[in-house]
């Protein structure tokens, strides 16, 4: 564990050095990501110009849901983004062999190979949205609430990562699963809004099959009074642990398949 932490630090330092060489590009990236997240918020704001509540949810409550999802997803984006290109950059061109002849965990190596600095823009936007919502919602923020919120955000990031890891691992069988990952990721659009606006089957899928519901909406209900949900949000960390475990098992199965076919 300590060894991997130290090794990650070495990778991280190196990525920072590269970024500093392309400072302008780095800034453009952060700004762009910041803006594209901003457009979605702006969209909601414009809609709320014309209405007072969305299915009983106020503007700031929706911002709060949004903020948790954005910040959680941003953590995933910064540290785990390389999973998207597992097929395209590693398996298809044969670069995965290079990973396998190194004395480190292959998943660790793939993840450490990239730090997506543009995600800083997303963290910023996520925090701005989240804090705006927190200030404007009638919630008492003490230390325990803040800690709970942090735990929820980390769980949210872990769930995003687990879903991506699960579908990225399919690349071991079909060479490149990026289109499937993209389609599944579209599902995360659902999490921006209160789940109560969807019908039962959508809710079921987002709760029990691809648990994006636990990346923002359920955790948010813990803090918002009078919502029809009470405790399900507390399950988020558990869901995160289970999802990560399942996804890692699939990854290991994929590795095994890879080592018997080598393609």
């Amino acid at each position: 564990m300590v060894r991997y932490a130290r090794l990650y630090w070495e990778f991280f330092k190196m990525h920072i050095k590269v970024m500093m060489e392309y400072r302008i590009d780095f800034l453009i990236g952060i700004l762009s990501v910041f803006l594209i997240q901003g457009t979605s918020i702006f969209f909601v704001a414009i809609v709320f110009d014309h209405i007072e509540a969305l299915h009983g949810w106020t503007f700031y409550q929706i911002l709060f849901i949004y903020g948790i999802a954005q910040t959680g997803r941003a953590l995933e984006f910064i540290f785990f983004d390389n999973l998207w290109v597992l097929g395209q950059n590693y398996i298809r061109p044969g670069q995965f062999d290079r990973i396998l002849i190194r004395p480190v965990n292959p998943l660790f190596h793939v993840l450490a190979d990239r730090v997506q600095a543009d995600g800083v823009g997303q963290v910023l936007m996520g925090l701005i949205v989240l804090i705006t919502a927190m200030v404007n919602l009638p919630i008492e923020w003490g230390i325990s609430e803040l800690l709970l919120l942090v735990l929820m955000i980390v769980s949210s990031g872990a769930i995003f990562m687990a879903v991506n890891l699960f579908f990225a691992s399919l690349s071991f069988w079909i060479v490149d699963s990026i289109p499937i990952m993209g389609a599944v990721f579209t599902l995360s659009d659902f999490t921006r809004y209160p789940m109560s606006i969807y019908n039962r089957s959508v809710k079921f899928v987002l709760t029990w099959l691809i648990p994006y519901g636990f990346t923002a909406f359920y955790p948010a209900t813990l803090f918002i009074e009078n919502s029809e949900y009470t405790m399900i949000g507390l399950l988020s960390p558990v869901v995160a642990i289970i999802s990560v475990t399942i996804a890692y098992q699939v990854w290991k199965k994929g590795l095994k398949a890879f080592s018997s076919t080598g393609s």
Partner: peptide
């Protein structure tokens, strides 16, 4: 992993 520690490799163009 143990094996990887003791080997080195050059794989053509990769």
């Amino acid at each position: 992993k143990k094996n990887a520690q003791t080997i080195g490799a050059v794989f053509g163009q990769r």
